[in-house]
């Protein structure tokens, strides 16, 4: 397989790995916090996190470009058109895909279990690590797989803040766009077919992770 095809696949996998990893460590505690929250504050925070579900990716990309670009407040960090910049965009854009299933899984845990844990002397950290996390593992798996798959398929945000730089920001979706512009339909077919197969596998895994393990 040529580097023209392999390089964007590697970049996409790298981006999805790093994004999912960050979302795992930041998103799971956030989802747990949200599941314990009530009232207006929760509605506000949930809406804020869910915005990328309905917002065109180019909008997020545009504002990130203004923030991270040469004239923005974070210009000295040189994040735009770089891999770390892509990670920031991907984490923000994939955040609801991690939070939603994990939060739902936490909410399904009966409160009585936490009360029992507390009565046996478990602190809040222990209740989170030893009760909540194991019981929400299916939701966490779903969140991780969805975040990973969503990052692999990202286009708009990447195009806005990453451009099309070989070996750095040219991910699979951009490489497909690029290959079509070059009339290289073979490369476009190979990359597109690999995404179709990957997406199907991801959905099967989500379905598997979300299954009720207690049912026969």
């Amino acid at each position: 397989m040529s580097m023209e095809i392999l390089s964007p696949i590697i970049t996409s996998l790298q981006l999805a790995f790093v994004t999912t990893l960050i979302l795992l460590f930041a998103g799971v505690p956030l989802a747990f916090g949200l599941s314990r929250m009530r009232g207006f504050k929760r509605a506000l925070l949930e809406s804020l996190i869910a915005i990328p579900l309905v917002l065109p990716p180019t909008v997020l990309g545009f504002y990130l470009l203004l923030l991270l670009g040469a004239n923005g407040p974070f210009a000295p960090l040189e994040l735009v058109f770089s891999f770390p910049g892509l990670v920031i965009g991907s984490v923000l854009f994939s955040l609801p895909f991690m939070i939603r299933p994990v939060q739902t899984a936490f909410e399904a845990i009966p409160n009585s279990l936490f009360e029992a844990g507390a009565s046996m002397g478990a602190g809040s950290l222990q209740r989170f690590l030893l009760l909540a996390l194991p019981l929400a593992r299916n939701g966490i798996w779903s969140g991780m797989i969805l975040s990973f798959a969503h990052t692999i398929g990202e286009f708009g945000v990447v195009l806005m803040i990453g451009g099309n730089i070989p070996d750095k920001t040219r991910v699979v979706s951009i490489a497909i766009f690029d290959a079509v512009e070059r009339l290289d339909y073979t490369e476009a077919h190979i990359l597109s077919a690999s995404l179709v197969v990957f997406s199907f596998i991801a959905m099967v895994l989500v379905s598997w992770a979300s299954r009720d393990r207690k049912s026969p």
């Binding site: 470009l65 670009g69 004239n71 040189e78 058109f81 451009g163 070989p166 070996d167």
Partner: peptide, 20 residues
């Protein structure tokens, strides 16, 4: 040589924003 292509206007916008 590594190549990235687009419309001249879009490429110049990227350069102004710090594209390497």
């Amino acid at each position: 040589i590594q190549i990235s292509s687009g419309s001249t206007g879009a490429l110049i916008t990227q350069i102004r924003q710090g594209a390497p």
